[in-house]
Amino acid sequence: MTTFLRDTVTVFRREFTPAWREPVGLMFEMGQPLLFLFLFGALLDGAVGASWQWFVPGILVMMCLTGPMAAGYYVLMELVGGSMERMMVTPLNRTAMLVGRTMKEMAVLFAQAVLIIVLALPLGFELHWTGVVAGLALLIVFGVGLGALSFVLAVKSAPDGTLFYTVTQVLLFPMLLLSGVLLPLDSGPDWLRVAGGLNPITYIVDAERALFSGQVLGLPVLYGAATAVAVAALGLFLGNRTLRRGV
């Protein structure tokens, strides 16, 4: 366990150092969700009567999807380049390789979340401490699973990466829309709601919205937590298996 933690820190520090040395890229990463929040959020506010309580967690889930996917892209680059192979020959803990990378994305997500919440407060966002902390914890579990899945996808797509780009482009966007991250599904036709019900991201989004409204105990949170844990377990299982079989 101690080597796992040490190795996770090693991987995290490696991934985080370039962002630390050149924070400009980090600032751009922050910029996009802010644009969404203010331009799209302002629009929604009038259109469907959705509150900031509804919109802020949606944005966070969306960022939680894009971060780990970006991590997969870097894995692909490192697989093609040879640096992944070099790390694979070191005794570095394999799970730490998966978790450390996602933790970097989660650190960015955390900073983004704080920024968004601080900026949304004057607009009428109510802060429920317990809910927000639990919500972020849930996103971290979910993100670790997604990061690991993205890692597996990158390994399977190497060296040309076609599979990776196809899945992330073709699959991710519909899944994002079908989860009701940006627009509520309630007003949509039946087939859309059924499709949404089959989408695991929907449960995460619902749980986050409940938590950000201060409803810590309840079915949406339970379903969301179960989904996040399932995704994390599946991701880590497949990720470890992929690493064991050799890349």
């Binding site: 640096s83 192979e85 070099r86």
Partner: peptide, 27 residues
Amino acid sequence: GYVGQRNSAGENFRVGDELVTQGRCYG
């Protein structure tokens, strides 16, 4: 130790940082 056919250092990282990371990978 292993020196592969391709480049061992990641493109996004500084030479010195990669060497320090590598040492940490070995504990």
